[in-house]
Design a protein around this nucleic acid. Sequence first.
DNA 1: CTCTGATGAGACGTTGACGTCTCATTCGGG
DNA 2: CCCGAATGAGACGTCAACGTCTCATCAGAG
Lengths: 183, 183
Amino acid sequence: MPIDREHVLRSAAALLTRRSTATMDEVARAAGISRATLHRQFAGRDALVRALEELGIQECEAALDAARLDEGTARDAVRRLVREFEGAAGLIAFLYTENQLFEGEEQNAGWARVDARVAALFRRGQESGEFRIDLTPAWLTEALYGLCASGAWAVSEGRVAAKDFQYMIVELLLGGALRREGS
Amino acid sequence: MPIDREHVLRSAAALLTRRSTATMDEVARAAGISRATLHRQFAGRDALVRALEELGIQECEAALDAARLDEGTARDAVRRLVREFEGAAGLIAFLYTENQLFEGEEQNAGWARVDARVAALFRRGQESGEFRIDLTPAWLTEALYGLCASGAWAVSEGRVAAKDFQYMIVELLLGGALRREGS
DNA sequence: CTCTGATGAGACGTTGACGTCTCATTCGGG
DNA sequence: CCCGAATGAGACGTCAACGTCTCATCAGAG
């Protein structure tokens, strides 16, 4: 039975989320395996990061599926989406910043799919009249990623309680800081 | 006449904002000086990053001063603050993610000052009844940084127009994605 | 002009992480 | 019990970036 590749990826994600410059040696030790075995599974650091990218995309698409974005009001769909994203928030934060490093190269096609589905949700909310139309879906998508990353870091450094993660993000994203006059 | 240290810092900031892993050699060439001269001014990469941190803190504090956070409504103060932050957004993005790398070490005391002033603004808005009280000032502060970083990246990759930077951030931060029923 | 100090170009050694390799050990199936 | 495949430990060479150093050049002050 081969070593649990899934487990290696999980622990690598957990470690690289906290310290994105961690060594292959540290990654291996975090997974409880030797560096040699780590290299037997992933040809190199690039391969590992790419595998993590695939994992992140899978998690995001699973979250998108689980959130059933087409059902109910757009705002409830956003709430469900953020809830589903929470588990992958650290991984998203890692990959989101990691992607800034690739200047020219085109990014993994999977992200385009994820982006498109998230943006479609915001567009649906705009067309139904729930969301304001002066904030573009592309920006709302970007902001969602950014807030997830900020939230994950804030939680990991104790500036925000873990149990508030979802609430803080959803409420800020949907309602903003201003008090509502009406509802 | 010594080389314009300010200019070196500016170009280093511009480069590292786009690619945070840029080489000392690239930093030097971007500034139009030789690697030797770069090392004569900054003992090493650490020193350079720390100098950039100081620069970022200065820019933030200058922005905080210019925004006159105590005057007028809190929401207008936030608008002014984001406007003043725009020029430093790339640098903020770089330093914000860079800070995630220092796990245990305490961060530069300057950030604590900046954080405190930003958080105080949000707290003022809460006490005046403008802002909702279920989002903590610490989280709003964090979210502001995160949105600035997301905005800077989105602009640099063409997903958001540069002229919309300020508007997108302020409107999302203050008002959120939902349409207002009342005003 | 001359002297001084700063600069650019580049060589040099060091370091840390990487990727490969070997070999002993271990674990599980037959 | 025995065998083979997978693992762990670690040695080894490679490489890129770093930091230091030297030296020729250049510009400006006196």
